[in-house]
Amino acid sequence: MAQTLTKTDFNFPGQKSVYHGKVRDVYDINDDIMVMVATDRISAFDVILPKGIPFKGQVLNQIAAKFLDATADIVPNWKLATPDPMVTVGLKCEGFRVEMIIRGYLTGSAWRDYQAGCREICGVRLPDGMKENEKFPEPIITPTTKAEAGHDENISREEIIAQGIVDKADYEQMEEYTRELFKRGSEIAAKHGLILVDTKYEFGKRDGKVYLIDEIHTPDSSRYFYADGYEERFAKGEPQKQLSKEFVRQWLIENGFMGKEGQQVPEMTDAYCESVSDRYIELYEHITGEKFDRDAETADIASRIEKSVTAWLEARK
């Protein structure tokens, strides 16, 4: 099996601290620059699975970089460069404590709530009589608060402003950016025969200005349907053909794991990990319309990253 990067322990020039997330490790350089390493770790049900997926970090990093570039005319973003296929470096911003989730279709958790009789999500009223995977008349924004631990919580725009989590002017700016980004993402997806169903954006602030931060439009942060056959499946009430990491969650569920106490993660054989890798590469090629480049494959990924990032930081001095 190809090499994977599941743990990092770098010491870059000017490094102040490091944050190890579920799949990304973020290094703070002089409280000014962030070095975000997209590892090959994979998580589901808020659990980091025991084995890495070859090329997963590269897939996510390169998709996000392409979409950050493709939307830079809409909103300023944190990205400065991608010195390595698995790394983005950019400006350090003070992140807002909300995630902006935007939904174009009634699916996933929103559908489960709707099915249970809920007609309002995050203060947004939903029409009666909708079906699973039906397109909303207009995309809806359903923000969540970013939890320090555990699950993020749904919250309305009114509560966010009233509680002072984000001030009114910044929140309205984030809403406007969210709608414009989703519109652009949907247009790009349509060119590749896809429907951008729902996604999330994160924003931060630097020098009084709102920036788009983190990843965007990746299969880990977004849900895509194949456009071909959508109408037919919807009319028949059949599940949509999806392009997301939902297939990993389904495999875990089928093997008796949903992240609950006492449950065991099923064995992740090399063959299974390779099959997940193939799916991620397929996602990349569909979403970007480009051939995936495996040239970055190397026996020592960590050394490659350390060398390329250090060279970039030194050149920027």
Rank of each mutant, 00 (worst) to 15 (best):
residue 124 V to F: 01
residue 118 C to V: 09
residue 138 E to G: 11
residue 119 R to F: 01
residue 130 M to C: 08
residue 147 A to E: 09
residue 137 P to I: 08
residue 123 G to C: 15
residue 134 E to G: 12
residue 117 G to T: 07
residue 121 I to Y: 05
residue 144 T to Q: 09
residue 135 K to P: 00
residue 135 K to I: 04
residue 134 E to N: 06
residue 145 T to G: 11
residue 132 E to A: 14
residue 137 P to T: 13
residue 142 T to N: 08
residue 137 P to F: 06
residue 124 V to C: 03
residue 146 K to D: 03
residue 141 I to V: 15
residue 118 C to M: 01
residue 129 G to C: 09
residue 123 G to I: 14
residue 143 P to H: 15
residue 151 H to V: 11
residue 141 I to Q: 12
residue 123 G to P: 14
residue 143 P to Y: 14
residue 149 A to N: 13
residue 131 K to M: 02
residue 142 T to C: 13
residue 126 L to Y: 00
residue 118 C to Q: 03
residue 134 E to W: 00
residue 145 T to W: 05
residue 127 P to W: 00
residue 123 G to K: 12
residue 127 P to K: 01
residue 140 I to A: 10
residue 127 P to T: 06
residue 138 E to C: 10
residue 151 H to K: 09
residue 145 T to N: 09
residue 143 P to R: 13
residue 124 V to G: 03
residue 148 E to L: 04
residue 148 E to S: 07
residue 129 G to F: 04
residue 120 E to H: 02
residue 138 E to P: 07
residue 151 H to F: 08
residue 149 A to P: 04
residue 140 I to P: 10
residue 135 K to S: 11
residue 121 I to E: 06
residue 135 K to V: 07
residue 138 E to L: 11
residue 119 R to V: 09
residue 144 T to S: 14
residue 141 I to S: 11
residue 119 R to E: 02
residue 150 G to W: 06
residue 118 C to W: 00
residue 132 E to H: 07
residue 133 N to R: 03
residue 141 I to M: 13
residue 142 T to E: 11
residue 119 R to L: 02
residue 141 I to P: 11
residue 133 N to C: 08
residue 143 P to L: 14
residue 143 P to K: 13
residue 128 D to P: 01
residue 121 I to H: 04
residue 144 T to A: 10
residue 117 G to V: 07
residue 140 I to E: 09
residue 144 T to F: 06
residue 121 I to S: 06
residue 149 A to E: 15
residue 134 E to M: 06
residue 142 T to S: 12
residue 134 E to L: 02
residue 119 R to Q: 02
residue 139 P to H: 08
residue 145 T to Q: 12
residue 142 T to V: 13
residue 147 A to I: 12
residue 123 G to V: 15
residue 142 T to A: 12
